[in-house]
């Protein structure tokens, strides 16, 4: 394969789809670990998975509407994925309010609804086909100019919101009781952040696919939190890991002609393992000593 393909970097100049793919990847690689950090701290990792499965319902309904019903004004089923992701988020919030003491119940309920609807509409659309495969495992090379603009604008809005409400988000994530005490409207923040999460999840589908979205969000953060020195430092490291996996994954998948979403996630996992080993054999001893030094202060 290596001999057949021209170099990835050379091809970047030649093919616009590759440039779109790379830009999409770089943007998502930047924003997902930031959102992922808050998801990890709040122990909501499973929510990303639930929302991505619910988005699949939107995708399959979209494909059904476009391919079977002939609603060609829907230019891309990914928009329906976004709408469904937000609807899924609303369902989760309603159910979390309904089962106050068993909040996690909301996830399997919403996930099963999403998966059932997906299965139903996939079968109605004539069964499993390559589009569904692309959405399940990622199809970053098919991202067009229009969708790239949607991703860029949405990301800018999300980052803007985060910049404005950074303090509140950090306090709520780390210590909800204290946030309540400061008079921060937690329910309102939670609602908005779940919607934001839903939007980011649906945008990530293009990069790595429904089944791998949560890994894009969680794994770089999981690796970074083992070596980060501060909150900001951890997020920066997570972004670096995430970008490495996305750019590296795109390059490798192009050179070897293998699935890009899977390559990105596998590189992410490789980074996680390397960080684990680095910590096990290099950092831990020093960390113990540092901890002792600090605690002596």
């Amino acid at each position: 394969m290596l001999l057949i393909n021209e170099s990835f970097f050379f091809a970047l100049f030649e093919y616009s789809f590759l440039r779109y793919a790379l830009l999409t990847g770089v943007i998502m690689g930047f924003v997902t670990p930031i959102i992922g950090s808050f998801v990890v701290i709040r122990r909501l990792s499973f929510i990303a998975d639930t929302l991505s499965h619910f988005s699949l319902a939107g995708l399959s309904i979209g494909l059904f509407l476009i391919n079977i019903m002939g609603f060609t004004f829907i230019s891309d089923p990914l928009y329906l994925a976004m709408i469904f992701s937000v609807i899924g988020a609303l369902f989760i919030e309603i159910l979390r309010g309904y089962y106050q003491n068993y909040k996690e119940i909301s996830m399997p309920i919403v996930m099963s609804l999403g998966t059932a609807l997906s299965a139903l509409f996939i079968s109605l659309s004539g069964g499993f086909n390559s589009s569904i495969y692309n959405y399940l495992f990622g199809s970053i090379l098919t991202v067009g100019n229009e969708y790239l603009i949607v991703i860029a604008i949405t990301t800018a809005i999300v980052l803007g919101l985060l910049f404005i409400f950074y303090k509140e988000m950090v306090i709520i994530s780390f210590d909800e009781t204290y946030a309540k005490l400061l008079g921060i409207k937690i329910a309102r923040f939670q609602f908005v952040s779940t919607i934001v999460l839903a939007v980011i999840v649906s945008l990530s589908i293009a990069t790595v696919g429904v089944l791998l979205v949560s890994s894009l969000m969680i794994i770089p953060v999981a690796a970074a939190m083992k070596v980060g020195k501060s909150f900001k430092n951890t997020i920066i490291i997570a972004i670096m890991f995430s970008e490495t996996s996305i750019i590296g994954g795109l390059w490798l998948s192009y050179e070897l002609d293998i699935a890009s979403g899977a390559t990105i996630v596998l590189i992410n996992l490789l980074i996680l393992v390397l960080v684990g080993l680095f910590r096990r054999f290099y950092v831990r001893k020093r960390l113990k000593q540092t901890q002792l030094d600090i605690q002596r202060k």
Partner: peptide, 27 residues
């Protein structure tokens, strides 16, 4: 009102954050 909770069970302190960062966002 300042409040110091019993233990720190409500605080997600496994994720890295420095003393300064906690104080900054509490200001």
């Amino acid at each position: 009102i300042g409040y110091v909770p019993q233990k720190f069970d409500d605080f997600n302190y496994e994720f890295p954050i420095t003393v300064n960062e906690i104080l900054q966002v509490s200001k």
